[in-house]
Amino acid sequence: MKTIIYTCPYVPAEWIAAHGLRPSRIILSAVSSAGSITRAEGVCPYVRAFIDEATTEKRACGVVMTTVCDQMRRAFDILVRKCNLPVFLMNVPNTWQSVAAQKLYLDELKRLGRFLIQLAGKSFSQDKLSQVMLEYDTVRACILAARGHLTSRQYAEVIAAFGRDGPGTRPDNAEGARPPIAGVPLAIVGGPLMKQSFDIFDIVEQSGGRIVLDATETGERGMCAPFDRRRFRDDPLMELANAYFGGIQDASRRPNNELYKWLDHELVSRGVRGIIFHRYLWCDMWHAELWRLKDWVDLPVLDIDIGGDNETYQHRTPNRIRAFLEMLQ
């Protein structure tokens, strides 16, 4: 089956799958140099890694990007010139409260659908969409329910694998599932993680903590809301749009107060005692939230700024996490 690669949580995997294509929400690998662009300075390492991945990707038949942040929007300009695959830029509004913004998102899904039909070579059916949504929703619920039975890294990896490989991934398939260990409960909050950042879960555990809330884009925060089974039978596409556009809270939304409401609920219900704030150098969206979060939350916040280089991953980040946990214990 032909594969479509993407990273943005506002791209519904179900929509791609319903068009007979294989959605793969990829987890990127950091590139330490400028990679496929002429200069790295000023470019978010995640964007750099995305450009690199899309330009070297061999198995996919198309790339989907969104306008959620300006750097990704500009990365699209680079990819249409450098990437051999067809690339689609989906307009995801930053505002969300108006009916017009919600309709724009829905219209963009339909436009994405036309792009997918061209790639798949066949049209899609509403029944197929309902069936795919049901399948994804079931596995998603299963994954969420498994949180208490997996280590935080396993849990994060199951979510990532679900995005990358689809509903074939079930938590009971997680390799060597082991029960979570006790430790100072922490949350990790921020944009998407790259492969190298998954080590953070282990570092936290080795240092006497445990991530009980993965509020990164690649974690729970980037998962859509559960579908309303009654509503989706009548109008699956509308329900899909509601669950994604209305259900995922992000720093890029204007205003983004719903992100804080969501965080408030999750931090309290999971007894979080400290926050690891994960952001990339040159990412304005998340960087600007750091101090707001610090002002807002009554918990210690550790700022981990990722430059995408090995030094950050191998030395600076582990040392800082260890020191943070020492302080909390």
Partner: peptide
């Protein structure tokens, strides 16, 4: 929307 991240983030 289609604006720079700097301004959007600072305005937020």
């Amino acid at each position: 929307g289609a604006t720079c991240d700097d301004f959007s983030a600072i305005a937020q």
